[in-house]
């Protein structure tokens, strides 16, 4: 089944105000840069964004914060972003902070048809407020609900026309689970190849989870914390 769309405009067609979006990436690593730029152009507002982080002021989801398109962020860590802080403290932006593993599993569960699951993470903390507690093997767990989205937007290294995806290094992160949990999943890839060119044994996200795929035109791949060691 051919999932290829012409360009980012066609890929993001249908994204509207008030929708819930999942956006892959960890920090600025493995984020769908081309799609985020297009979201700014579309101008859809009151968005709920599920993403591990919120980008930095001038890159990643930070761009959508500058344009005030995001109503609510669901994330595990949102530092490194002054505009985010300003909007959060002024009450313009709603923020739901979730332990990282619970966030990953909630996306996976959403895509896997599991409505909720118990986890020990967050028990006894404010994350557990209002959540059902159940003891298994003598240890208390809290009930966490699955997450799904109107659109999931992921970034992969290589993809084929069938929508099969391969990620590179730690740019994989949240992308595979989010790809599973979107009603419509859009994959932005660095290389788009004909079906048959990717080894089926090394596919990370099978094409069934992807509805639209396109080759991104530019990838800046900004590094958030450049750390190096000196050569002797």
């Amino acid at each position: 089944m051919n999932k290829v769309v012409k360009n980012v405009e066609e890929a993001l067609n249908g994204i509207q105000d008030n929708m819930t979006l999942m956006i892959g990436g960890f920090g600025l690593c493995g984020i769908p840069e081309n799609s985020i730029a297009q979201l700014v152009k579309i101008g859809a507002r009151n968005l709920t964004c599920i993403s591990n982080n919120a980008g930095v002021d001038d890159f990643g989801l930070g761009l959508l914060l500058q344009t005030k398109q995001i109503k609510k962020m669901i994330s595990s860590y949102v530092g490194e972003n002054e505009e985010f802080e300003r909007q959060m403290l002024s009450g313009e932006l709603e923020v739901d902070l979730i332990p990282q593993g619970s966030l990953a599993e909630r996306c996976r569960a959403g895509g896997a048809g599991i409505p909720a699951f118990y986890t020990p993470a967050g028990y006894g903390t404010e994350v557990a407020l209002g959540k059902e507690v159940k003891v298994f093997n003598g240890k208390p767990h809290i009930l966490e609900m699955a997450l799904t989205a109107d659109f999931a937007i992921v970034k992969a290294w290589k993809g084929d026309t069938e929508g099969n995806l391969i990620y590179k290094s730690t740019a994989r992160n949240f992308n595979p689970m989010m790809a599973m949990a979107g009603k419509i999943t859009i994959a932005e890839v660095e290389e788009l190849v004909p079906a048959g060119e990717l080894d089926p044994n090394f596919i990370h996200t099978p094409g069934i989870f992807v509805q639209r795929i396109f080759k991104g035109s530019t990838f800046e791949k900004r590094i958030e914390q450049r750390t190096v060691r000196k050569r002797n």
């Binding site: 595990s76 949102v78 530092g79 902070l97 332990p99 990282q100 993470a121 967050g122 903390t125 994350v127």
Partner: peptide, 8 residues
């Protein structure tokens, strides 16, 4: 800023 993975 958030708990990241610390709670898990």
């Amino acid at each position: 800023k958030g708990m990241g993975g610390a709670m898990d």
